[in-house]
Simulated scan of single mutants.
Amino acid sequence: MSYNNILEELEENILTITIDRPKKLNALNRETIQELHDAFKAAKDNDEVKIVIITGSGEKAFVAGADINEFADYSPKEGKGLAADGQKKLFNYVANFPKPVIAAVNGFALGGGLELAMAAHFRIASDNAKMGLPEVSLGVIPGYGGTQRLPQLVGKGRAMEMIMTAGMIDANQALQYNLVNHVVELDDLLEFAEGIAAKIMKNSMVAVGAAIRAINANYEDGVNGFDVEINEFGRSFGTDDFKEGTSAFLNKRKADFPNK
């Protein structure tokens, strides 16, 4: 599929999606959000894709925020629709994606950029990364899940401070806050992410998908995550991967998962 604002590269079952608007510091406009949705939807249906890595083009920015020019004159109703549509099409879609999504955060991840990184299943940052939710400095609040996912990751107090001050933290502080899992040099960022992806792919991708659903259930209102875990655990016994995994263990050989 051809896109105007993103690039795709599929290699060894790893799909790298690069947001490619360097002159705008990869800011998210409506078209880019739609293209990202389309790319993730296609990846969901593509059996060749086992893992998705999302990053930004260039060295300056992962995503420097939303494209403010698009909504500066919005009414309250339009603003609510903007947030609801974006969350449905991209941010919640990524958070609940059935295949692992790794954010490789290079440079600025601000506003919608940090919200996109937080929607990924985990994050790796380059040593030049800067992260923040500066929306209150514009007279608005984070609208793509930032007020919900940031406290889940860093705790309520730190999230309150970051959002209310509209300040940025650097990569090492993000690591200290548990906002990112690893910090590496910029030149090593994608290779490091691919290395983790390769480790994941040695396992049953069916089981990995089930684990994603069970973990996410803990953060859904009105859902008992333990019940979801029990159900997913039980369903695993009916998979070809379970048969292969247990057989390989008992016969002291490496598993060759069919991912079914």
Rank of each mutant, 00 (worst) to 15 (best):
I6L: 08
I6T: 02
I6R: 00
L7H: 09
E8N: 15
E8H: 13
E8T: 15
E8M: 09
E8D: 10
E9Y: 10
E9I: 00
E9R: 06
L10K: 05
L10W: 14
L10A: 08
L10C: 03
E11K: 11
E11V: 08
E11M: 00
E12F: 08
E12C: 03
E12H: 07
E12I: 01
N13Y: 00
N13A: 01
N13W: 01
N13G: 01
I14L: 08
I14S: 12
I14V: 15
I14N: 04
L15F: 08
L15A: 07
L15C: 06
L15M: 12
T16M: 05
T16L: 13
I17S: 06
I17L: 06
I17A: 04
I17K: 06
T18S: 02
T18K: 04
I19M: 14
D20R: 07
D20A: 15
D20Y: 15
P22Q: 04
P22D: 03
P22F: 05
P22L: 04
P22N: 01
K23Y: 13
K23I: 15
K23H: 15
K23E: 15
K23Q: 15
K24T: 05
K24W: 06
K24N: 02
K24F: 11
L25A: 11
L25V: 09
L25C: 10
L25E: 14
L25M: 13
L25K: 12
L25P: 05
N26G: 10
A27K: 05
A27S: 13
A27N: 06
L28H: 09
L28K: 11
L28R: 05
N29I: 02
N29A: 02
N29V: 03
E31M: 09
T32Y: 00
T32D: 02
I33T: 05
I33Q: 06
I33S: 03
I33K: 09
Q34R: 07
Q34M: 10
E35V: 03
L36I: 09
L36D: 00
L36S: 00
H37F: 14
H37N: 13
D38R: 07
D38P: 11
D38K: 05
A39R: 08
F40Q: 07
F40C: 07
F40E: 06
F40L: 08
F40V: 01
K41S: 12
K41E: 14
K41P: 03
A42M: 13
A42H: 09
A42C: 07
A42T: 15
A43D: 12
A43R: 09
A43M: 09
A43Y: 14
A43V: 14
A43Q: 12
